[in-house]
Deep mutational scan, measured.
Amino acid sequence: MDALKSAGRALIRSPSLAKQSWGGGGRHRKLPENWTDTRETLLEGMLFSLKYLGMTLVEQPKGEELSAAAIKRIVATAKASGKKLQKVTLKVSPRGIILTDNLTNQLIENVSIYRISYCTADKMHDKVFAYIAQSQHNQSLECHAFLCTKRKMAQAVTLTVAQAFKVAFEFWQVSKEEKEKRDKASQEGGDVLGARQDCTPPLKSLVATGNLLDLEETAKAPLSTVSANTTNMDEVPRPQALSGSSVVWELDDGLDEAFSRLAQSRTNPQVLDTGLTAQDMHYAQCLSPVDWDKPDSSGTEQDDLFSF
């Protein structure tokens, strides 16, 4: 819950932080000083300027060897085509990944977070970031790969997607708890209302004896509580940590079903599988986004697919 609360507080303090972009060759504004600060901008989305290598189908939802083989196929196909790589912007948030063309600003792909089953910074092609997700059109699994400016960037994108998945799962947990509370309150309110109706004398007997209905007592009954809980029953509950912020979080049926399955089948359902080692994760978390744009010590960066 700490990640969720800190993310909400950060967004309320400075929503404009989320509009910064990394990996864009110096076009961005001043960047936060450390990885923790940038992680807090996830709610509205972190932007990464990358190059799209392509996509291939895979048979399993996750796995280092599986993704490595898929990336190898994608890279080989991209090299064989001889075409310049498409420059894209990857927007990562707890909602998922939005992929747009840098030149036309046209939407290429919009992947809900619950469809993503794996992401990684490839070991062999260490400047490549990739994720595996279920197609929104059918049940097939797709591996999408992107060329980053350097290994640090690939690791940073991988960690960002993993963190977005974690925050999304926490949102789901909060929403589920809130819905259970509202359902319980609604049920209790309905029981109270039913009890009051059972003990209320029939209207005919009131008229016969000349008694008047006590409207004041009726007004004191917990009807307002019942209506408050039943009027918006169809509205999706939102985490309290975000009250007053500009973010509107809505959970669709697909996300609810997917996270429910994860909660039942996995020990740590909030953790998205990645190909990063503990050492890689520690190294990337210690980086400032400013470091992502620094040239690798191995030599001059080449803006070309064939540089790796």
Rank of each mutant, 00 (worst) to 15 (best):
I71D: 00
R9K: 13
G275P: 04
T41L: 06
T149H: 13
Q155P: 00
V58G: 01
N211D: 07
G254Y: 03
L223W: 04
S227M: 04
R27K: 13
Q264G: 05
P32Q: 06
T104L: 05
L103C: 13
K204C: 02
V226S: 08
A208L: 08
Q20W: 14
D234R: 03
A133S: 13
S135Y: 10
G63L: 02
G299R: 03
C286D: 14
L47T: 11
R29C: 14
Q285C: 06
L11Y: 06
F171W: 14
G24W: 11
K87E: 09
A278V: 12
R238V: 04
E178N: 07
A121Y: 01
G299V: 10
M124Q: 00
S205T: 13
Q270K: 04
A18K: 11
K79T: 13
A284I: 03
F48P: 01
G82C: 04
G194F: 11
G275E: 05
L42Y: 15
G96N: 15
V192T: 06
G26V: 09
C286M: 10
L251V: 08
L213F: 04
H137W: 07
T300R: 07
K62P: 04
W249P: 10
E170R: 04
P61K: 02
K179I: 09
P239F: 11
R95G: 08
F169Q: 02
L215W: 08
I71V: 09
L262D: 02
K152S: 06
L287F: 15
L215C: 05
K150V: 11
S49N: 13
K51Q: 03
T104C: 08
I116Y: 02
A80Q: 08
K19R: 15
S6M: 15
S243Y: 07
M281P: 07
M233Y: 09
T225G: 08
A69S: 10
R13T: 13
E59C: 12
E235Q: 14
V92I: 12
W292I: 04
E33S: 09
E44W: 05
G275D: 01
Y131H: 01
W22E: 05
G254I: 01
R115H: 04
E188T: 05
R151T: 01
K179R: 15
K179Y: 07
L262S: 02
P61T: 12
C148I: 00
G244L: 07
S297K: 10
F129N: 01
M233S: 07
D191G: 06
S16Q: 07
M153E: 12
S49T: 15
K179F: 06
K294I: 10
V75P: 00
M281V: 11
D291M: 05
L141R: 13
M46L: 07
L17C: 11
K294R: 07
T149E: 08
L206A: 12
L159R: 12
K5D: 06
L90G: 01
E109F: 02
P202M: 09
S246A: 07
L17E: 12
T77N: 14
E142Y: 14
E235K: 07
S245F: 11
R9G: 13
E64L: 09
Q187K: 07
A219M: 02
P295Y: 06
A219Y: 10
D198I: 09
D183R: 13
F259E: 03
R73W: 05
Y114A: 02
K91C: 04
Q197C: 01
A219S: 05
A263W: 05
N102E: 08
T41A: 09
P202E: 14
R266V: 05
E235C: 07
P289V: 01
S135V: 05
N34D: 05
G24N: 04
V167A: 10
V58Y: 03
T267R: 06
L90S: 00
A162C: 04
V75K: 00
P269K: 03
N110A: 04
A145M: 00
T89K: 08
A221F: 08
V167G: 04
I12L: 15
N138T: 15
A156E: 08
Q279D: 11
K127A: 00
Q270S: 13
T100E: 13
S224Y: 10
K91I: 06
V207D: 03
C143S: 01
H28T: 10
D293P: 03
R73T: 12
P295S: 02
T89N: 06
A78E: 01
V174I: 10
L193I: 03
A68L: 15
Y118A: 02
L213Q: 12
R13Q: 15
V157G: 00
M46A: 15
P289Q: 10
P201G: 09
K176R: 15
E142G: 15
V111I: 08
D198M: 05
R73K: 13
L107C: 05
V192N: 05
K79W: 05
K30P: 10
P295I: 09
A228Y: 07
D304Y: 05
E178S: 14
V290G: 04
K91E: 05
G189W: 02
W22T: 01
A76Q: 05
I98Y: 05
